[in-house]
Structure formats: structure tokens, C-alpha cells
Design a protein around this nucleic acid. Structure first.
Lengths: 213, 213
DNA sequence: TAGATTGTTAATCGATTAACAATC
DNA sequence: TAGATTGTTAATCGATTAACAATC
């Protein structure tokens, strides 16, 4: 599958968007799409689209374009989103539960197998099929279950000991909604950070900039 | 303040992170920091830190470094995050409420002045100080209140008419959690997209890649 | 003074865009 | 055949890194 050895991170960041557009086109019954049309949706150029896709193989046909369903499947395979890696959620607050529901609803990439919190009010309650467990059970749970990924939805101030427990139990990938820098302390971990407050600040910056112009 | 005319988007993306680290350092009582130390935290280079900061002015002292509190204030000003732009939330689902609480809790950038949903079960309920209103009231509300920013936490399928109402009422900035592409349809809008499912797919991709190596 | 560290210019690197032969 | 569109190489552009005089 992989045509080139090192795929640049900017290409990888664009893959989920290609995938979304191809799903849409497929749902609309469109069978073929040109690099130009994909570029229009990506706010990019036809050149870039062709460069991007060519990282993984030759999927188009001269004069015709790309087969939508086929390209969608190819990108699905590249991303590996048919997998269901076992994941646990740490922190059943607002964001935690929103994420849990979204992940469970998607039915892709990850399967939620546990939720943990330290709040006695929450422990024992159910979220979908899953009962919220005491965070003290985390280590035992990880020892008894194969956990690929931890979703961290707790404040930065309490992440470190939790991350140590998880790392000690062999968890090596994290979807991190806290501001704790996991890469700083742990080796060989895959971390996908989501910093909502950074996003907010950038919107703020652009508002200010516009007002000043 | 602005030393250079065109600040590159990669610099802007890094500003919130500088700000966070400076706040941390300040909280720790650190008075001065070198570009090297900032770079270590940013996973960057001293050179890049100095280039970034020099977009906005000369804030350091040779041989000494940067004054933490001063630089934090400077970046706070650049980002404009002391402002409180009036914002409304559309969609009081899981993510919507999580975001609403986070925004209100931050007390920075935006002040939530309205929440809208179409679910009769939700309408009339309170979130903090704010009563969830019927989405049908959206237009009237916008006409009677100054609304800077709309936070879109509704599914893509229902965004378009809502966005049209908002745009018609003069709303020109959006924090968009849906997959609807606002820039495609509306001119002169500031859109900050948050695509959680894209983030999830990228984590998935990296997991797959690691397993294959 | 010597060591540290800045601001800034120049060099390098990587990503994007343009161009075009190949071919459907 | 003519028009469209690909894959791919070359050219351009922009961002990152290195280097170093200035100076605290």
C-alpha cells in the first residue's frame, strides 16, 4: 500500500478531510471526482490533491478522475479506521461524557470499554452500557483488560499520576484533552492532543485582528 | 504593537501555547526565561522561539532572556483574550453543554449570552445562569442583542438554515464543531473549526502505523 | 571581563504550485 | 480525434534552522 516511506504530517492531517468529502460525494451518488473538484472542497489546489494521493498509490484515471467509492475505501484503509481499538475514558465530566458518547456513536476507530472518575456521585452510574468505575480500580482494570488507548478528560493538575498508572500498565496511546504534555515525560507514546482553549484563543485573536483592520 | 504586517498562520497557531507556558512559569515564580527553555517546552528550537516573538516586537534582553510576566502580558494583548465577545451556543447536546461550561468557566474571550436548541425537553432548562431558548427565537434574539460569535454544536445536516439566520442577523464569527463548511457559502466570516472526528482518525492512523512497523 | 542570550540575517529544508507528457 | 485529467518532475514559495554580531 505505502508507496513512499515518509508521509509528511501535513498530508496525514488532510486525510480525514478527503475521507469526509469522499463519503459525502458517495452518499450523493457521485461516481467520479477530479482532483480539481476535490481541491475546491479542500480549499486547496488540484496539484496538491494529486501529490497527496500519490503518496499512497495511483488511484486515478487520466481524462476521467478518481473513482469515489474506491478512493474512499483506499483512504479508509490507509487511516485504519475500520479498527476498533479498546479504549477507556478517564474523567466523566462534561467533556468526557460528550466525547464518550461521540466515540461510542461513531462505531469507528475505538471501542469504549471503561469509564473512570473519582467523584463518588458519578461512580456506579451508567453511560450507555458502561458503568462508571472508581479511578482506584484503574490499575486492576488495565491489568485484566487489554487497553490500547486512554482518553484523558481530567484537569491537567491530576493527570500525572493517572498517566503513570496507565503507562505502567502498558497503555501507549492517548487522546488527550488536558494540557498535560505526555510526550515530555513518557517515551514511545502516541499522543493526539485536543486543546479547545487554544482554539478559542485563536478565534479571539482573529476577531481582534479583524476589528483592528 | 504589530512589528510586521503579515504574521504567518503557523506563528499564530503557536501563540496560545507560548501563553500557556508563560502562565505556568509565572505561577511557579519564575521571573525570566530563555528562548532555549521556551523551545524545550514547545518542542521547538531557540531560533524559532526568537523568530516567533520578534514578529511582534523586541521583548528580550541579551544575556538574560525574557521577563516572564511581561511576555505573558504581551501575548495576552496580542491574542486579545482579555476581551469578552458576546457569544451564543446553538445546540445543547453533550458537546454543546461541555463547551458552554468550559467557555463560561474560562471567563476569557467570550461571554455566553444565549443557548438555543430545538428539543422541547431542553427548552426552558437552565445552564448556569442561562435558560435554553427555542431555536425559533434565534432571529429575534440576534436582532435584539449584539451577538459577536456563534458556537455551532449541532449536526451538519441542520446547520445551513441556522447559519443563514445568523449570517443574516450580522453574526460574522463562528466556533464550529459541525462539519459544515461555513467559508464555502458565506463571505467575510471568521471560522474556527474543531473537528473531533478528524482528530480521532489521526490517532487511529498513527496507531495502525505503529503496529505495522 | 567572560558567559549567556538576544535580534536578525543568511542558509537550509520542506511543502506547495506549476508545467507537461502520457493516456483515458 | 479532441478534451479532460492524471502522475510526476521541476520551480517556487515559505517556514525552520544556523550563525553571529551586539550587548546585558
Amino acid at each position: 500500500m505505502a508507496k513512499r516511506e515518509n508521509i509528511s504530517s501535513s498530508v496525514i492531517r488532510r486525510l480525514p478531510r478527503y475521507y469526509r468529502f469522499l463519503r459525502e460525494l458517495d452518499a450523493m451518488g457521485v461516481t467520479h471526482v477530479s482532483s480539481g473538484e476535490l481541491a475546491r472542497r479542500m480549499r486547496s489546489t488540484a496539484s496538491q490533491v494529486r501529490q497527496d494521493l500519490n503518496c499512497f498509490g495511483e488511484f486515478g484515471q487520466q481524462g476521467i478522475g478518481y473513482n469515489v467509492a474506491m478512493l474512499r475505501d483506499v483512504i479508509e484503509d490507509i487511516l485504519g479506521i475500520k479498527s476498533l481499538y479498546p479504549a477507556i475514558l478517564i474523567g466523566a465530566g462534561n467533556i468526557g461524557l460528550a466525547i464518550a458518547n461521540q466515540v461510542m456513536f461513531e462505531g469507528r476507530c475505538f471501542e469504549l470499554i471503561g469509564i473512570f472518575d473519582k467523584d463518588p456521585e458519578k461512580i456506579g452510574k451508567k453511560v450507555g452500557e458502561i458503568t462508571i468505575q472508581n479511578i482506584d480500580e484503574l490499575q486492576t482494570f488495565c491489568e485484566n483488560n487489554s487497553v490500547s488507548t486512554a482518553i484523558l478528560c481530567v484537569p491537567k493538575s491530576v493527570v500525572e499520576p493517572i498517566a503513570e498508572t496507565l503507562y505502567g500498565a502498558g497503555v501507549r496511546s492517548f487522546w488527550n484533552f488536558s494540557h498535560y504534555d505526555l510526550n515530555m515525560k513518557f517515551d514511545n507514546v502516541i499522543v493526539e492532543n485536543v486543546h479547545l482553549s487554544d482554539s478559542l484563543m485563536q478565534l479571539c485573536f482573529r476577531l481582534k485582528k479583524q476589528n483592528n483592520d
